[in-house]
Design a binder for these strands. Structure first.
Lengths: 246, 246
DNA sequence: CGGCCTGTTGAAGAAGGTCAACCTACGTGG
DNA sequence: CCACGTAGGTTGACCTTCTTCAACAGGCCG
């Protein structure tokens, strides 16, 4: 429809096997686009999903709530990210998906996606790649929360978000971070107070700058080395494996 | 080959869409079976994987190491679990896979799996289901590590392992747990000392019994309620969606 | 103007980590 | 058969990290 590439296209073109053709097929099967404001629950735990959804604009979070009402944010979803790539096999949501900013979601019917994947094996691989990426992100998040100190968790998360964001938006080391310290706390398994202190600490030592929902990573390489950040789990180097020969 | 079902068959038959036929096709394409003892690194971070692997026997762990040599166990893999279902799209490992017990891994060539999935859409869904399950487990693990107290983390993990194990082995609330407190600590982001204390506490209050690598969950329902455990993320209720009609 | 959301800071306390010692079970070699 | 070594488990004492509670400041919006 438009001239400039959609978030989905920018997001998926990083996968070398993904032909523009395949991605366009996905795009063309989109039958609905839903705009929403920040804080809307798009999918609730236990809900049945009949469509495949991807984010066209805005940020979302996957989250769970504990008995005592506390929240754990499991992952952030950025423009172009798929909300439920597993929908062909599993349709019951096991967590909530909530918008963090004004956002837009595109929908493809499950049966349409199934048909597409059958016809175009390439597309199936793109879904697998995207899903493998998310699994990598989840594993990395477990390492962050399980074995890193508070300040390092934060820096590590920021480095990851910067990298992910750079796939779909034209940003450099300074970028808009449309989430609050509360979200960072609920993502990293910390209290807001401690997140605040740790971030002030990062600012004080010159690792980052931070004000008004904007973050700047001062020396990305140095910081990445210090907190042991690597983008390996994003699998951005996924090669063309010549699957079409099989 | 054998009369009794393999771990893979037991593992996958929980998915109602999975026909025995499909699972047998997977089984029949297995070209190699590798036995290994405990503590062997089957896959190393950064390594290229040319085959699809699944566990035929024994336990494994997915793990990462931090700069300072500490370890985070990201997930446990049980008999019948797939080690790398994403291999069609992504072949570089972003973490280590290590055997925890004497074990056996079966291998299918990537190209063979690709062919199978093309011919049998059912099988593709089984892979998606298995992968979605693991994602669910990873998300649940993030909640455990991020927002639960030590003793609850342990109880929650034990409940999950019991449930997963019951899919492939004929166990009740007492079962063999072939991992040490060190593994539990590295999985839950705790120190061994604290895991020990918390487990003693669980034993003292009568929630579990524990000795010589055997665990007994005393009152599963009560405990599950108390630590907010639900098996929803395992998606064992995945219905037949009538995909064959598409 | 007032309310609310976000960020910020201080002080006190709890959960969990670290260090260190010791104990038991078990396997191995003499 | 016993001596020894090692891996896993257990406990105490002390210390660090993070949480909780509380108060307050700035910005934004009705």
């Amino acid at each position: 429809m438009d001239d400039e590439p959609t978030a989905l296209e920018r997001r998926l073109k990083a996968y070398r096997t993904a032909s523009s053709q395949s991605i366009r097929e996905l795009h063309d099967r989109t039958y609905d686009r839903v705009e929403c404001s920040a804080g809307e629950v798009l999918v609730g735990r236990g809900q049945e999903m009949t469509d495949f959804n991807y984010s066209a604009e805005g940020w979302f979070m996957r989250c769970r709530y504990t008995q005592d009402g506390r929240r754990q944010i499991v992952n952030f979803l950025l423009p172009g990210d798929m909300l439920n790539p597993e929908v062909l096999a599993v349709t019951t949501a096991d967590h909530d998906i909530v918008s963090l900013t004004p956002a837009a979601v595109c929908r493809i019917r499950r049966t349409d996606l199934y048909e597409l994947v059958q016809q175009n094996a390439d597309l199936g691989l793109v879904l697998w790649w995207s899903s493998a990426q998310e699994e990598g992100i989840l594993r990395e998040h477990i390492v962050r929360v399980g074995r890193m100190a508070a300040a390092n968790r934060i820096a590590h998360l920021l480095l990851e978000l910067q990298r992910r964001l750079s796939l779909v938006e034209d940003i450099d080391d300074q970028f808009a971070l449309p989430i609050t310290q509360v979200h960072i706390a609920d993502s990293l398994g910390l209290s807001v107070v401690h997140v605040n202190r740790a971030m002030r600490h990062l600012v004080a030592e010159g690792a980052i700058e931070y004000s008004r929902s904007r973050v700047q990573i001062k020396n990305r390489k140095e910081l990445a080395g210090r907190v042991d950040f690597s983008a390996a789990h994003l699998h951005l180097d996924a090669l063309d494996l010549g699957n079409s020969s099989a």
